[in-house]
């Protein structure tokens, strides 16, 4: 299991399009992805779940990846947060 904290860097926060990018990326891997914000934990492969977090710029999320391909999955997911979801 890999656990890591990421910060939302883009101005508009984790809105619909970034959420879609995130779940699409997560769906490519077999591993389970869990995202948590302020104790609220959701499945990272569910777009409804990801949007429920309503994560704004500057907020911190804990991501947890668990499964056979967790290394690659975690790297890919952290990368899209760092790329600001290709928005800016």
């Amino acid at each position: 299991m890999i656990e890591q904290t990421v910060t939302i860097l883009n101005r508009k926060g984790l809105h619909t399009r970034p959420a879609a990018l995130l779940v699409k990326t997560a769906a490519r891997f077999q591993s389970e992805l869990t995202l948590a914000k302020d104790g609220f934990e959701i499945n990272g492969k569910s777009i409804i779940g990801v949007m429920t977090l309503a994560a704004e710029q500057g907020s911190q999320l804990t991501i947890r990846v668990e499964g056979p391909d967790e290394e690659e999955a975690a790297a890919a997911i952290v990368a899209i947060f760092e790329r600001k979801f290709d928005e800016e």
Binding site: S46, I47, I48, M51, T52, A54
Partner: peptide
Amino acid sequence: GTDLVKHFME
């Protein structure tokens, strides 16, 4: 459900 999502589904 949650306030935000209510009865939306994917």
